[in-house]
């Protein structure tokens, strides 16, 4: 025992009990063993795993597309507004595919009347419960024609889908595809309003032969499936 404060004596005092020393050595050895294998797992193995995340990887996303069509032919009376519903659950969506956008073409064929002058046809996609991008700037929800040309309407269903190839930075494939694996879009009915205003030369149709119009609505549903490849 000593009270002169020498480091050597102090260490000798701390380690003066043999039974205590055995416990201490056992604890220190256990600590070394634990440090070695947890150190390997954390410092070596996890460093490898995490290195993949240190800089985002570049991925290219391309889209395979398939189309489905639906059609309705309606005979609309003069000054009538007709609502036509297309139930999108009727179409067959292949595995892995989602609805990207919908193109609608409305055609009318002038047959009645003496002059055969084109009638005014208007078509509107009506906002309803259909899950779609109703405020997308690329939408064209209304159209009108009085020259017997088809009316084209468009609505984007899946957010930001335009079919173009994309390059994306992400830490893994899953996160790169995260924006392209959402479900729930394109559920509901597509609702289209048709308006007809019969036109006659100088406003005259004395025989009353031009009172309606046969209007065809073709709905082209563009479906997509994302494909991903890592850029080197």
């Amino acid at each position: 025992m000593s009270s002169n404060g020498d480091l050597k004596d102090i260490i000798s005092n701390v380690t003066s009990n043999n039974a205590g020393n055995k416990f201490t050595i056992f604890s220190f050895l256990a600590a070394l063993i634990l440090l070695s294998y947890t150190g390997y797992d954390t410092v070596i193995y996890r460093t490898d795993v995490i290195s993949e995340f240190s800089e985002p990887n570049e991925y290219r996303i391309t889209f395979s597309t398939q189309n489905e069509t639906m059609q309705a032919v309606e005979t609309v009376q003069d000054d009538e507004t007709r609502n036509v519903l297309f139930d999108l659950s009727d179409i067959n969506i292949p595995d892995g595919y989602m609805i990207g956008y919908i193109d609608i073409i409305i055609t009318s064929e002038e047959e009645s009347g003496i002059s055969g002058q084109c009638d005014s046809v208007a078509g509107d996609i009506i906002e309803n419960e259909l899950t779609a991008q109703w405020n997308d700037p690329n939408n064209n929800l209304s159209g009108q024609d009085s020259s017997c040309l088809p009316i084209e309407l468009d609505i984007t269903i899946y957010p930001n889908f335009d079919g173009e190839t994309l390059n994306i930075s992400a830490i893994n494939e899953y996160q790169a595809l995260l924006n392209w694996t959402q479900t729930g879009w394109g559920e509901g009915d597509l609702s289209i309003d048709l308006d007809l205003d019969v036109n006659a030369p100088l406003g005259l149709d004395p025989l009353g032969t031009d009172t309606d119009e046969e209007i065809t609505i073709d709905v082209y549903i563009v479906m997509f499936k994302p494909n991903i490849s890592q850029l080197e």
Binding site: V14, T15, N17, N18, G20, N21, T24
Partner: peptide, 15 residues
């Protein structure tokens, strides 16, 4: 430091 101190004095108490 604390582990040897703990075991030294625990052993002194017990033994």
């Amino acid at each position: 430091i604390s582990i040897p101190v703990y075991f030294r004095f625990l052993s002194e108490e017990m033994l």
